[in-house]
Design a binder for these strands. Structure first.
Length: 183
DNA sequence: AAGTGATTCAACCGCCTGCGC
DNA sequence: AGCGCAGGCGGTTGAATCACT
């Protein structure tokens, strides 16, 4: 038994944390959050929870706003060649400072940049691991492309100094714009 | 058409930092 | 000066989606 006031408070806090909702956001929740930000601005995130607007932590609210609800976001939009160049350049300059890198990209979040980078890293690792693979491209993915974007894997590869990488880069075979194989 | 593996991305976790008391 | 809290950030995970066989 804890008879101290501070103990009670901690218990309450623990209970509140335990009842916090997690997982995907609903349209309803998004609306509540949007309304809150409209009225109060994007700040005091923890008061969203403490005032009973949403059963979400302040952190969760902030993340949702920053990554999905903020105006002018290019969500669902493939990175353009220019954006990819910027990410590669900035990553070389600053390291994995995604939030910082994201400030150079209009409408992109640190999460976008982070996801983009890790996807590229995986793909690159696979490329290097598997010399001269027969690789069928993924066509027609549900990308909502902002502008005509070529496969810019080359851009990433250009930033590495391995001769084998250059070899891979220049031995892609395209027929009618479709990447078929490595020669 | 169904099964399987690859890929994407939303969201969580844990650590760090800054600020107020 | 030290403590506690909130916010920010990077790393990671897992569900959803997609392409291929």
């Amino acid at each position: 038994m804890n008879s101290s006031g501070s103990g009670d408070f901690k218990e309450l806090q623990a209970t509140a944390t335990a009842t916090m909702k997690k997982g995907p956001w609903t349209a309803e929740e998004d609306k509540v959050l949007m309304d809150y930000v409209k009225k109060n601005g994007p700040r005091d995130w923890s008061s969203i929870q403490s005032n009973g607007f949403l059963p979400r932590t302040g952190k969760s609210c902030r993340l949702r706003w920053v990554n999905k609800l903020r105006p002018n976001l290019k969500s669902g939009c493939k990175f353009t060649l220019e954006e990819e160049r910027t990410v590669i350049d900035m990553q070389a300059r600053f390291g994995n400072k995604w939030a910082r890198i994201a400030t150079f990209l209009e409408g992109r979040t640190d999460n976008d940049v982070k996801n983009f980078w890790s996807t590229r890293q995986k793909r690159l690792a696979k490329l290097l691991q598997t010399p001269l693979p027969v690789r069928s491209p993924r066509k027609h993915r549900k990308e909502t492309v902002c502008s005509q974007v070529p496969d810019s894997e080359d851009v990433l590869l250009q930033n590495l100094n391995s001769p084998s990488i250059e070899f891979i880069q220049f031995t892609k075979c395209y027929v009618n714009g479709k990447e078929l194989d490595y020669i």
